[in-house]
Simulated assay, not measured.
Amino acid sequence: MKKTLATLLFGAIAASAMAQSTPVGLWRNVDDKTGEAKGEIRIVEANGALLGRLERSLKKDTKPDATCDECPDDRKGKPIAGLEIIRGGKKAEGKEVWEGGKILDPENGKEYRASFTPIDGGQKLEVRGYIGPFWRTQTWNRAN
């Protein structure tokens, strides 16, 4: 009985830890220049690929009815709140990284190739945006 209980408890803890080693969840991104939180992004997995929406802007100067005027595609003119900023990205075989996705910067309307790597036991997410051979990495924090 004790052995079964210990096995179940260990399995639950391991499953919980594994669930945290994924980009799926609610994240806060931080402004590279000011260090202030910019927004909360909810990432879900749909049909094996990532999808992320800007749940809410945390910037003080964002108007409640702000829209993505710089977006070049179907997101042009859509409200910033709820805007889909991550499309695609699948877990790389044998690695703890999700690759092949795209991420949109709603401030300038530019879309970048992207990869997403959970770090620090899944409490942080390295988000790397690529354009050509150049890239920039941000570290997002898991929001509770």
Rank of each mutant, 00 (worst) to 15 (best):
K2W: 10
K3S: 14
K3C: 09
K3G: 09
T4S: 14
L5N: 10
L5C: 05
A6D: 07
T7I: 15
L8C: 15
L9P: 04
F10H: 06
A12P: 05
A15L: 15
S16L: 15
S16D: 15
A17V: 13
A19V: 00
A19Q: 03
Q20I: 04
S21P: 05
P23M: 00
W27I: 05
R28G: 08
N29C: 14
V30F: 14
K33R: 13
T34W: 03
G35E: 10
A37C: 08
I41K: 03
R42L: 12
R42P: 03
I43D: 01
V44Y: 13
V44A: 15
A49M: 13
A49P: 06
L50T: 01
G52S: 00
R53M: 10
L54G: 00
L54P: 02
E55D: 12
E55Q: 14
R56A: 09
S57L: 03
S57I: 03
L58V: 00
K59L: 13
K60F: 12
D61E: 12
K63W: 07
A66R: 10
T67S: 03
C68G: 00
C68S: 01
E70S: 07
C71E: 01
C71D: 00
C71H: 02
P72R: 12
R75W: 04
K76D: 02
K76G: 00
A81V: 04
A81Q: 09
G82N: 06
G82A: 08
L83F: 02
L83R: 00
E84T: 14
E84G: 04
I85A: 02
I86Q: 04
I86T: 06
I86V: 15
I86Y: 08
G89R: 03
K90A: 15
K91Y: 07
A92C: 11
E93R: 09
E93G: 09
E93I: 11
E93S: 13
E93N: 12
G94I: 05
K95H: 11
E96K: 13
E96R: 11
W98F: 10
E99C: 09
E99G: 06
I103V: 15
I103D: 03
N108I: 01
N108W: 02
G109L: 01
G109R: 01
K110P: 08
R113G: 12
S115F: 08
S115L: 10
F116M: 11
F116N: 10
F116A: 10
T117G: 07
I119S: 12
I119R: 10
D120L: 11
G121I: 04
Q123V: 05
Q123M: 10
Q123W: 05
K124G: 07
L125N: 02
L125T: 02
V127A: 07
R128I: 08
I131R: 11
I131A: 10
I131K: 12
I131Q: 07
G132L: 03
G132A: 06
T137D: 05
Q138V: 07
T139P: 08
W140L: 08
N141Y: 12
R142G: 08
R142C: 05
R142H: 06
N144D: 14
